[in-house]
């Protein structure tokens, strides 16, 4: 049950991009193509999952006063690791997303999850939390990357799907990222409000039914 809740929370109800609004810099800067967005998401997941796991393992040993610097060093080491890996194995991608991989270390999501969840939970839950929040982040990046690449260049993952459509330039520059994200957030809010309203009505109806049932008995 806890596992299901955790997964749902990270991906939907507490999505790092649309609800927590954390780690926005790469979200806006690197989602101009699907490929970039995907690889940055994967790199962030890598750091997030491992840092959550390591911090929950050593969390009790670290004195309270120096915990933040210790977390930062753990996260920075992991960031250096993924930086080296991508630089070595995906040099083409690295030239585009390198400057955002280097700043994964100050991505607020990672420190936020370390402080809010990993430090006070068991390793297996911390690992799961890392996976679900990471998946939520990756999902947000993926959607933005897909939409922006399609609208900005008429392509999906580098493949031209609409030959007559050469793209709306604005969506491939940061300005388009701000606007696209705003629209997605508004849609998310709209759906959320709708669902909450439905649940409220359902609850009210149930209460009414219960009341009439009680009244009937009396």
């Amino acid at each position: 049950m806890k596992a299901k809740n955790l997964i749902l929370e990270g991906i939907v109800t507490n999505n790092p991009i649309f609800i927590m609004v954390l780690g926005m810099c790469p979200v806006l800067g690197i989602t101009n193509t699907l490929n970039n967005a995907f690889w940055l998401g994967v790199s962030t997941c890598f750091v997030l999952i491992l840092s959550n796991f390591i911090i929950s393992l050593v969390g009790k040993i670290i004195p309270d006063k120096v915990r933040i610097p210790c977390y930062i060093i753990i996260i920075a080491t992991l960031t250096t690791l993924i930086d080296m890996l991508i630089r070595k194995f995906l040099p083409g991608i690295y030239t585009q997303i390198g400057r955002f991989i280097q700043i994964i270390v100050v991505n607020c999501i990672i420190l936020a999850r370390a402080e809010a969840f990993a430090a006070s939970n068991e390793p297996k839950w911390a690992l799961l939390d890392g996976v679900s929040v990471g998946a939520g982040y990756l999902l947000g990046l993926f959607i933005l990357g897909l939409l922006r690449e399609f609208l900005g260049a008429g392509e999906i993952a580098g493949i031209n799907v609409l030959p007559e459509f050469s793209g709306i330039q604005i969506f491939s520059i940061p300005a388009g990222a701000f606007i696209m994200l705003a629209i997605l957030m508004a849609i998310y809010n709209y759906i959320k409000a709708k669902i909450e309203k439905k649940q409220k009505i359902k609850k009210a109806l149930l209460r009414k039914a219960a009341q009439t049932a009680q009244g009937g008995k009396a």
Binding site: I170, A175, A177, A186, N189
Partner: peptide
């Protein structure tokens, strides 16, 4: 519109400024 209140609207303003 209610769904745009707060952050989405700020993001749109930022987008126009970025343009």
């Amino acid at each position: 519109p209610k769904s745009f209140k707060g952050l989405p609207l700020a993001l749109i303003a930022a987008g126009i400024m970025a343009m």
